[in-house]
Amino acid sequence: MSVAKIELENVSYVYSKGTPYEVTALDNVSACIKEGSITGIIGHTGSGKSTFVQLLNGLEHAQEGRVLLDGKDIWEKPKEIGKIRFRVGLVMQYPEYQLFEETIRQDIAFGPKNMGLDKEEIEKRVLMAADFVGLERELLDKSPFDLSGGQKRRAAIAGVIAMKPEVLVLDEPAAGLDPLGRDAIFTSLVNYRNETGATVIIVSHSMEDMARFCEELIVLSHAKIVMQGTCSEIFAKADFLSEIGLDVPQITGCMKLLSQKGLSVGDGIYTVEDAVRELSRRLSSL
């Protein structure tokens, strides 16, 4: 099960190298993302998260180090980097601003069309992707302008899912959405993983979302990976997280307070559902 899908080997990336504006975005970073996992990337603003995800599909080329996909350097044949981008689908921040076609259907078809698929296959993939993100069929022939913000976001994500990427990378997929919209998007990502076995990588600021939907976490701080492990391993180190400007999920802090006040609840509670279960267990045993 735990085969590495994507590996980073001593990767460094510096913006505007050799000018007075030089900024180190990633400094000698090594990481391993397991095949079929849902991996979260967390870190405060400017810690290198966005650069990290753009390296994965070759939008940026690391000055040092290698990015391996299935054990092969993605830049082995620089001319074929386009093929890598179909295998590693990237949804950037606020993807709804990139819709450009007259109808949602055509926009979702943009990726598959660039892959050179035939008409039938493209149509199949558009419907498949729309279903994954929960976009009603009757919306497909509307203009992107007629959709709500949440629907546009889902359409944009569908545009990447339609390429059936083996690795789906999303930069802040739920930023600015209401709680229902967030849940809908994360659930569709979990479904995509469960049904296709793809690897999903999510960048987010919300520890709650990370705790609920991710299995593995990578913590970035000041251009370096400072922690990597399962959710419980990471969130157990609340003090270290707050040191680098991050937090544990609110409910975890809440449960910690309860146990400090003398109510013995178990450790390792990261979601509201777990907390409800734990508290009702405690109540029934009283």
């Binding site: 753009q54 599909n57 939008l59 386009g82 981008r85 179909f86 689908g89 990237l90 949804v91 950037m92 993807p95 601003y97 990139q98 819709l99 450009f100 943009f110 990726g111 660039n114 892959m115 545009g159 990447v160 390429m163």
Partner: peptide, 28 residues
């Protein structure tokens, strides 16, 4: 970057093809 991630190709083909390739950037 976002359109490149969906396989848009801005650097090959003739003049007309390249001009057409700019639509996904110009419209948004």
């Amino acid at each position: 970057a976002a359109q490149k991630a969906r396989g848009a190709d801005f650097s090959s083909g003739g003049l007309i093809k390249r001009a057409k390739a700019l639509i996904p950037i110009l419209v948004p």
